[in-house]
Nucleic acid binder design. Structure first.
Lengths: 248, 248
DNA sequence: ACTTCCATACTTCCATACTAGTCAGGATCG
DNA sequence: CGATCCTGACTAGTATGGAAGTATGGAAGT
């Protein structure tokens, strides 16, 4: 039964197989078509795409590295449950990294960048009411633009991996997703950068990234079987203070 | 000839082979026993350890993910040169993450942690004059202790990957390595945490991590063949300001 | 009814064979 | 002599065949 949820499109036999398997599986997991806790096997996936087990295995290894699969030797491979701590940790790391990126950008505001960002804000507003699913794509584009502008492409590669954990939650929370609010926060970031206010840019990013997972507790309450709460209840999100001392 | 530089110890056939190969190769690359630019092949490595290509291949994939190897399909696999930008990027990311960690720790100074850190400082001073190579291990322990204390074990996993790029440089620069100075900076971090001064802790970490690669230009000048300078000269390190605005 | 043992059907892991692409060097042709 | 093509020795990518370990269900014994 599992095959139907994964093999939506056929593979291109001309290009390398492993990356294709990887991409399809990753998408299926993040969008929760493969539910947390599901068992999958090399053989099963290989048959469903009519390839050998080898490229499937290598895709599994990559996904296990991202924390999306757990490969248990001689026992099986399962889609990991969403780890509450990992999600909060990913959020913490993104905040630390992107806050510094915003500070760099605010140091030397680039008019061309501001223009580009404001265009993106318009697009975000356009989909806000109609298609919240599309917002996730635009949101990714926004944050990526910031990283690229700061010449921190390497940082984005890291953030991408962190996002996978967070996005699983976001795809669960669609529907009741405060898109309008988030767009407003994006605007605050752009404003602060434009004005060259490093500390305002810093604070705006931190506020924004703390809001993104605001409904995590509700989602957890609604679908507890998707989550893997470590030991002893829901962890308290601990963060560095937004308002630091006199200097940063 | 390459085998001699890698197969120093035998493998344990009882435990999984892939992780062993991975660990050995990673160590060989970071310590520059495998020099940047060296070509290696799955077959060659497999023969040198008397295993099949398969586990070697999987180790290669992991190392390529960390940016230590470049696998060129149907052409070969080479040890990547040290990418100047990647090193600076890794440093930037560590600064952002560890600065936030220090802030968290300074919010609630833990006496037991302070005691532990001060003991580590003593050990660091002990090796400072005698064995600078050992310092790298103690340094790793120090930074890891900070991450763990802030309940950010996930963050450390990320930092470990970043460190691999930076450590390649550090193993080149041994000898003229300002260990005493770095220990002093460690002490400043501990002091700031103990006093609960979040902004001082923040600043101390940032200062420290900017110092670590202070001699990168000289190392690059000494061994240019180990480096891969992107396009157009040495990139200027761009960083967020240590002294931010009135708030952080 | 309950426990213990064992056959069986899985699973991932490793070994091996084969495919296809790349590159260098030499023969051949102009 | 010089350009071109071909051939063979590489490379990594993929397919497939066991090997070793694990879970499961039923039979046998208490």
């Amino acid at each position: 039964m599992t095959e139907n949820r994964i093999t939506s499109a056929a593979l291109d036999p001309a290009s390398p197989i492993t990356p294709q398997i990887y991409a399809h599986l990753r998408d299926a997991i993040i969008r929760n078509r493969l539910a947390p806790g599901d068992r999958i096997s090399e053989t099963e996936i290989a048959k469903s795409w009519s390839v050998s087990r080898q490229p499937v295995r290598e895709a599994f290894i990559r996904l296990a590295g991202e924390g999306l699969l757990a490969v248990l030797p001689q026992r099986g491979t399962i889609v990991t449950r969403i780890n509450y701590s990992d999600v909060l940790n990913a959020r913490f790391l993104r905040e630390a990294i992107e806050a510094d990126i915003a500070k760099i950008l605010a140091q030397r505001p680039d008019p061309a960048l501001i223009t580009e960002l404001r265009a993106q804000l318009q697009a975000q507003e356009a989909v806000a009411a109609s298609a919240p699913t599309d917002f996730i794509g635009l949101d990714e584009q926004f944050h990526r633009t910031l990283a690229d502008a700061a010449d921190k492409r390497g940082a984005w590669r890291l953030i991408e991996g962190l996002k996978s954990q967070m996005d699983r939650v976001r795809f669960l929370s669609l529907g009741h997703f405060p898109v309008v609010k988030l767009v407003g926060q994006h605007r605050a970031i752009v404003d602060a950068i434009e004005q060259g206010d490093t500390s305002a840019a810093n604070a705006a990013v931190r506020t924004h990234l703390r809001e993104v997972l605001i409904d995590l507790p509700q989602i957890h309450a609604a679908k507890p079987e998707f989550f893997d709460v470590p030991e002893g209840g829901i962890p308290e999100p601990v963060n560095a203070p937004i308002q630091g001392g006199k200097d940063e």
